[in-house]
Amino acid sequence: MIKSIEEYLELLKTELQGSDAATVQDALSDAEEHLRAALATLKQDQPDVKEEAALSQIIDQYGSPSETASAYAEVERRTVPQLARENPKPQSVWGHFFGVYTDARAWGSVLYMLIAFVTGVFYFSWAVTGLATSISFALFIFGLPFALLFFLSVRGLALLEGRLVEGLLGVRMPRRPLFTQQNLKWFDRLKELTMDRHTWFSILYMFIQFILGTIYFTLFTTSLSLSLSFIAIPFIQELFGQGYIMNNDLRYYAPTWSYPLFVLGGISLWTIFMNLARGIGQLHGRMAKAMLVTD
């Protein structure tokens, strides 16, 4: 006999062991939302009903923890994130190397590397400002509520980053906010958030994202500009009569026979970068999952 919603959620969590962490988080917040809404309605209709009896009636309709867990597992098996669908494996090494252009995940990673620069700068400023002001405001009465707001914003940003990671990198991330006990006083909520490993990992992620974002952005712009320059050399020399290296009045011209080599070099460089980006994207996704999703 399940006595409280918290107990149901604990049991559901146990039942879901081994499933994707993001699925678990979704299932828990769905169950919490439903059970609380149902309980509130039932209490309104029958004020003198015992909570335990009400709950057992509600759970009977909602499904036992094991029934609910199997429903999620079933649907999860059928739906895989858009980008996680396996591309048909090309046979040769070359096919694999150039096949990167048809791989949605590689393009997603390239886009993510670009966006990571912007989000990284934002996360970093947010985390530094939030932490610094929370600590210094701790001297005043309003310091603690301020810290609570900051921690809550970190949770929100972690969820947002998760959506970005799932959309672009194809790594399954939570779609619902982490469930928390509702009836807590704000001070207890703050204590809970401060003690939670997840909060600090998310803040750490915000710092790391700044460094990684900068590296990704540099890699992206360097690769893109070098590749384009190589490809452009024949056109610059033939159409505009300029040398490929210009040092004051000295111009160096590449011989005509080398044109295909430059173009090929440029294309290969970009292809290498695309392959690199695909790998980086997968690694980054794994890191984000480890740091932003609670187990």
Binding site: D26, A27, D30, H34, G63, E67, T68, A71, Y72, E76
Partner: peptide, 8 residues
């Protein structure tokens, strides 16, 4: 079961 609606 109502719980099965959510994953859908």
């Amino acid at each position: 079961k109502q719980g099965a609606l959510y994953p859908v």
